[in-house]
């Protein structure tokens, strides 16, 4: 499965770069992320509880980042599995400034297997898109929070990444095993700060209505027609 898309942040490229390299921020922007464990300089393990369509389930995963070019781009490698299947993916994330805003382009290829492949294939593109969009939307909110001095500014700089796939995770270093200078740590996301299933669905519905402002009127018209028809 190929995944590609972009998202526009009302923030500078440095702000976005810093956010997408901050595990504390990412842990709150990745759908259903329960914890994010840094196990190496650029390597993370995570557990996600995803509750959307065919990708519903608990997933354990490992993410590595390499080829970092600050503040422009990096590559990520994801390897995750759960009760409904597995995912293995590689992707590139690029940031480009445009005026006052920053555009994040993502692209990659994911291999999925198990039930999520055979049962969910026809749904997976939509699910992936929804999860990624809601994740990026949450990220944008977190960046806005940071500007106004909110969360996570106490966290030391380290790397973490949203994954262009329904089973996102965390980050890891390119070659050598975890450098001794890196402190292993575990970020546990409090339940109320997780990007929950409900938030994803709510966000997706909000977006849908924003994109299709006429839709409520169609529903209203249908209901009026239905009631008139029954009344007659």
């Amino acid at each position: 499965m190929r995944i590609a898309g972009n998202y526009t942040f009302e923030a500078t490229r440095e702000e976005v770069w810093s956010a997408i390299n901050d595990p504390e921020v990412l842990a709150r922007a990745i759908p259903g992320c329960q914890h994010l464990d840094q196990v190496g300089e650029n390597e993370f393990e995570t557990t996600l509880k995803v509750g959307l369509q065919a990708v519903r389930g608990v997933y354990h995963g490992r993410v590595k980042i390499d080829n970092l070019v600050a503040p422009e781009s990096y590559e990520i490698h994801v390897d995750g599995k759960g009760s409904t299947g597995f995912l293995k993916g590689n992707g590139v994330i690029k940031l480009r400034a445009e005026g006052d805003s920053t555009i994040l382009d993502y692209g990659g290829e994911a291999h999925i297997g198990g039930t999520i492949a055979s049962v969910g294939q026809r749904l997976i593109d939509g699910a992936a898109k929804t999860l990624i969009n809601q994740s990026l939307k949450a990220l944008a909110a977190l960046i806005a929070d940071r500007r106004s001095g909110g969360v996570a500014d106490t966290v030391p700089e380290s790397l973490a990444v949203p994954i262009p796939a329904p089973v996102p995770t965390a980050v890891a270093a390119p070659a050598p095993p975890p450098a001794p200078s890196i402190e292993r740590r575990k970020i546990v996301v409090p339940a109320h700060e997780q990007l929950s299933e409900a938030a994803v669905v709510r966000g997706a519905i909000e977006d849908f209505f924003t994109q299709q402002p006429w839709l409520p009127w169609v529903v209203v018209a249908f209901l009026i027609g239905y009631i008139l028809g029954r009344w007659k």
Binding site: G113, T115, A117, S118, V119, Q121
Partner: peptide
């Protein structure tokens, strides 16, 4: 990848 897409 050998995944059965028409699985249901």
């Amino acid at each position: 990848d050998g995944q059965l897409l028409s699985g249901t």
